[in-house]
Amino acid sequence: MSRIEGVLQTLKGQGRKALIPFITAGDPHPDETVGLMHTMVDAGVDIIELGVPFSDPMADGPVIQLACERALKYGTSLRRVLAMVSEFRKTNDTTPVVLMGYLNPVEAMGYEAFADAAVKAGVDGVLTVDLPPEEADDVAPMFAKRGLDPIFLLAPTTTDERIRAIADHSSGYVYYVSFNGVTGAAKINVDEVAAKVAHIHELTALPVGVGFGIRDAETAAAVGRVSDGVIVGSVLVDTIARNQTDIDALKRALTDLLNPMREALDSLAS
């Protein structure tokens, strides 16, 4: 069983929901990322999605675009992100880490070289936004064979046929994008999300994490009620942007954001 499956099964046994933060690696500076990861673990998160910065983040809104620019300014390459995960693993071997980003940095490194290095660093899952399962015939099995969970997106526009096919290629969890749009937009409609996630649960046994548009304890609880976990991104990245120069203040601000989300999610526990 992968680390991701283990964590999600334990939570399920407890009737609890996963809190999954996203931050961009290397933002505000490559030396700070590992510290921020530990801060988030202390604030009660279950899985960390670590963004690999890319020069052309087509699926992201302005908040994460700027985070990529900050991280790239300090040379945050994919190899450097892997080094951060190794560093994190020195003191944490329980919290799963999922790399999330775009395909080209992985392609440039070479799929096999990347997969080997990712496993060695202690990465648990990989989500490349611009890699649909149709193009992942070689890559997904290469990841899966090494115990890396290939994680794919589902969207409001995804047909039933595709939901089944995508679930077949996935392990760990599937990531449901709550609305048509880029990260950071504020369009979430909880009733629509509830209906679609319930439907996805009928088509696959995999846990469903929901991301895009979750900004506070209230939306986290509303979405947590109908899913297996919530992914929180832009609001954290925006907090990083506003506190780039004072890392202690930044860590307090992240903790202050995540604590109420954790409490709200746990108050749902049956």
Binding site: V129, P132, E134, E135, L153, A155, T157, R162, V177, G181
Partner: peptide
Amino acid sequence: ARGHFGAFGGRFVSETLMDS
């Protein structure tokens, strides 16, 4: 059928656009 010209082409977009 997948839009490939030899090793090139294809459809590398986020899931939201695939159906369209």
